[in-house]
Structures are given as C-alpha cells and as structure tokens.
Design a protein around this nucleic acid. Structure first.
Lengths: 162, 162
DNA sequence: CGAATTCCCATGAAAACCCATTGTATCCCG
DNA sequence: CGGGATACAATGGGTTTTCATGGGAATTCG
C-alpha cells in the first residue's frame, strides 16, 4: 500500500444554505491524480467525532487488502465474522458523492448528521485519507494535539470567527 | 532511510509585499535530485521557534515508516491513538507549496505566523531537511551555537542589516 | 402544483503566471 | 591576466486564472 499521492494540509470551508461545500482544491488535486474520478467517499471515523473521506481508488485498494487478509487467515468462524463486519462498514456505511465542475459536493444529510457538521467544515489531510470536522468538536477533543488545535484556531480567525 | 542528497548551506532571502520568497537555488537542486517535484513541505519545528521544511519524497518516506510501525505493533487502543495523532501532525499540520519557474513560493500565512517570519527568511540546511528562521529569533536563542549565530550575523551584514 | 434538486452563471479575492531588472559569479577569448 | 560577454540567481511589478461562494433559472419528483 504505497500510494504515490498523499492528502496534506488544512482548510476551513463554509456549508451554505443548500448544504453545499467546496472540497479544497489541493485535496481535489490528489483525488484526480490517484484516479480519474471526481468523487469522494464519506464514512464516519472509527475513533474521532468526525468524518473520514477518500477517493474511490483508495476504497478499491482497501477492499483488496481486506480480501487478502481473509484468504491468508484460515477461515475460522471468528475471522469470517470480522471480515463480514468490516466489509459492511467499508461499503454499506459509506456514501459516495460526486463533486461538480466548481469542486462542490452536496453534503449528504446522514453524513452531515453523523459528523455533526454545521455551517463550517474543517478539512484535514492525513496522508492516505482526509478528515472533515466540525471545528468546535476538534477544539473540544482532549485527544487532539494542541498544535493542531492552533491550526484550527488560525483557520477560524482567518474567517473572522472567534 | 539513507537519503543520497542532503541539504546544506545557508542563505538569507527577502519576503516581499505579496509574501513571496525565493527558495535558495542550492536547496532546490537537492529537492529536484531527490524527486521530480518542484514543491516543498512546511511544518512547525518541534523544538525551535522556526519552520522545518523538506521535499514531498521525504514526507512519503516518513509516512511509509509510520505505516510499517503500526502494522508491526499489536493494534492496542493506545498504539492506534498515537498513530492517529502522529498522522494528523505529519499531514494536517503541514502545508505543501509549489515553487514557480523562478524558484519562489508564496509563503502560506499560517506558517509564516507559526515561524514568526517577517521580511527576512534565513535558510539553514540540516541534512535530511532544512530550516527557515526569523534571523533575530535565531540570534536570541541560547541553545544555538555561537558559530552558527556568526553565520547569521554575516548574512545580515551582507544585506546591510545591523 | 409545490418542494427540492440540479444546472448555470456571477463575483470578489487570492493565487499562479509572465515579463523585466539587477546584481553577481562564471566563462571565454584575446 | 584582464575584461567583456554570459548565465543564472533573486527580486519587483503587472496581468491572467483559479478558487470559494452566492444566487437564480430550469428540471425533476412526488
């Protein structure tokens, strides 16, 4: 799993009244270099109160990895069950949304609720994937390093939000 | 992690009104020999009041190393969390900026603030990476060897700055 | 028909691009 | 060895393009 192009950087974008958000251009660049889709996949993050996002090419890679894992292990009932569970999470519990020519998606209501995203969406590159946060939830989470919170605060200031 | 080409040397360049700075040519040479990107990655230095900078190839290497570490360790909750935190710091808390045909970047405001860079940027090669300093902060730091400060003073004099 | 959704265009700010100038180090040829 | 010509680096300025975002028209669906 050595991906050539990695998601990096941060941005704070507005969610408008219609539920539209611009995917930052630097993230779109990575998506389009990894494959030719203009689409992102959204999922609830396993550990943090935010969303995890990636491109369809990465979803395929993840699936292949799961498959290999299953074939390698002897097919004990436990391994079978775990595979089924993870596969469900990886595919049923995600939503794929295309972005338009101006780089915006229409935020799916279910995901928006799961990520508790309000009028501001904080995008954070994390290498293979990226995350979408309600900035306030990030500031409130004790597990997030202070230096990263500084960045979130800076992005908020930039927009004139206290 | 034995990189063939290393960053070395020093230079003092101006940041203009638009926030542009020339990356010294001798550093660009190393970047382009390591990979074919014309891009640098900026991060806050962990210990000093300056910025740490490197090329995307080095960032990818660092990432691969993290990944391998995770797969080796048993996936205890603690290890998982630390992995998440380090990934966030390595990718969300950094910015990737391309330099143009004349070798200049547009200094991202957030990083400029984090590094407290004013109108002068002091570049210092440090092998695998290089650093960008506000020269005054380097002179004021008691942890910096006097010989290195002499170099900074020389670069300042060269420009006619007291 | 009404509500929501998709499409299309408008705009202001910021970023990328292009061209010009200057200084300095290098080279080459007399 | 000198001196002019050359190449490249750093920097300044103006112009074009892209980005994020808002609003409205057209279209679909119940």
């Amino acid at each position: 799993m050595a991906l050539e192009h990695l998601f990096q950087g941060s941005a704070l974008n507005a969610v408008d009244g219609k539920g539209r958000v611009s995917i930052p251009a630097f993230l779109r660049g990575v998506i389009e270099r990894r494959g030719d889709a203009r689409t992102i996949v959204l999922a609830k993050h396993e550990a943090f109160p935010c969303l995890s996002a990636y491109d369809p090419a990465y979803a395929a890679l993840k699936h292949a990895k799961l498959e290999r894992l299953l074939e390698k292990e002897e097919t004990s009932p436990d391994a079978q069950l775990e595979y089924q569970q993870r596969n469900l999470m990886a595919f049923a519990a995600t939503e794929e949304v295309p972005y338009d020519s101006s780089g915006r998606i229409l935020f799916p209501p279910m995901m928006r609720r799961k990520g508790e995203i309000g009028e501001l969406a904080l995008f954070l590159g994390t290498g293979e994937t990226f995350q979408i946060w309600n900035p306030q939830l990030l500031l409130d989470d004790p597990r997030i390093p202070e230096d990263l919170k500084d960045i979130a605060r800076f992005r908020l200031e930039e927009r004139g939000v206290s």
